[in-house]
Design a protein around this nucleic acid. Structure first.
Length: 297
DNA sequence: CTGCACGCCTGCCCGC
DNA sequence: TGCGGGCAGGCGTGCA
């Protein structure tokens, strides 16, 4: 259930297995994830070389040598596992986190589970996309068509880019009546934040999730942009260090959650020094918000 | 346009 | 132990 930092971590984690590698075989084991996979998905990936990897919002973008872009979204439960195709291959080819290679001679597909929906083999590695809830998605986008693609056309700026600054946020919040929590979750305002990092950023900026967007001051908007940047950057750093210690690049929140200040901590004391508040859980438009009423106003 | 409720899917955890 | 209810990190649709 990845948000921006987990997707960034997964993207970096699969880079050794994909970047500059040729796809020998790609198999969709069902016709759809959240939406139908593109027609002839496997055939269109086969033979391509991945020439670049990047992330936009919560999407991973794999640039192919025919100009198309393979787009992956992990939804809520998507994960990617890697293994070496050849048991004798140096681990650097797939990354130190890879699962053990299947035994020589064994049918690697025999070990696949019911939620292993897409398998991609490069010249060195085998990549398995698993998604129990199937809220994830993949597409193949024609050269030049990304900007107008339905998933990207209306996305707001990247929160770690220079475009996302106090001026921008203050302007977008002005006149809005919806709670700041809901506005920061709106991918059209800023792209890549999810429930966890919105809660964490609001705590860091000392702004209550219930505050109407239009009632966020210019000074608070500035604090929020700094808080968002810092929370995301720290989470990406934690994810990066986790890649050296774990055997899967699944973006599991286990890598990050011990650092949360409020998310999932209802009833626990606020971690801000000299704040005597207790972390509280409320529901906002059907989703949980965690915050400290003592220091978030 | 804005704000919000709901559905999509499965797994897990909790209380009874 | 078994079972029902509520919960989960995303996103698109549809309604007022």
């Amino acid at each position: 259930m990845p948000e921006l930092p987990e997707v960034e971590t997964v993207m970096r984690g699969i880079a050794p297995a994909l970047l500059g590698r040729r796809i020998l075989r790609a198999t969709a084991r069902r016709p759809d994830l959240r939406w139908p996979l593109p027609p002839r998905f496997g055939e269109r990936l086969q033979g391509r070389v991945v020439s670049a990897l990047s992330r936009r919002s919560k999407y991973i973008l794999a640039q192919l040598d025919d100009g198309a872009t393979w787009v992956l979204h992990l939804g809520m439960s998507g994960r990617i596992a890697l293994s070496a195709r050849d048991p004798a291959a140096p681990s650097a080819l797939v990354g130190a986190f890879a699962l053990p290679a299947p035994a020589a001679g064994a049918d690697p597909d025999a070990a696949l589970g019911p939620h292993d929906h897409v398998v991609v083999e490069t010249d060195h590695a085998r990549l398995i996309y698993t998604d129990a809830r199937r809220f994830g998605a993949m597409d193949l986008v024609a050269p030049g068509a990304l900007a107008t693609h339905k998933w990207f056309a209306r996305l707001g700026p990247e929160p770690l880019s220079a475009d996302f600054d106090a001026d921008f946020l203050a302007a977008r919040l002005a006149g809005r009546g919806a709670p700041i929590k809901a506005l920061l979750l709106d991918q059209r305002l800023v792209a890549g934040l999810g429930n966890i990092y919105v809660c964490e950023s609001l705590w860091r900026a000392r702004v209550a999730p219930t505050r109407p967007g239009g009632a966020v001051s210019r000074r608070e908007a500035a604090a929020l942009t700094r808080a968002i940047r810092r929370v995301l950057t720290e989470a990406i750093e934690a994810g990066g260090s986790s890649l050296r210690d774990h055997r899967q690049v699944d973006g599991d929140l286990g890598y990050f959650q011990h650092r949360f200040a409020v998310y999932g901590r209802a009833g626990d004391p606020c971690r801000r020094s000299r704040c005597r508040g207790v972390v509280t859980r409320i529901a906002q438009s059907g989703r949980s918000s965690f915050f400290c009423p003592g220091c978030q106003r």
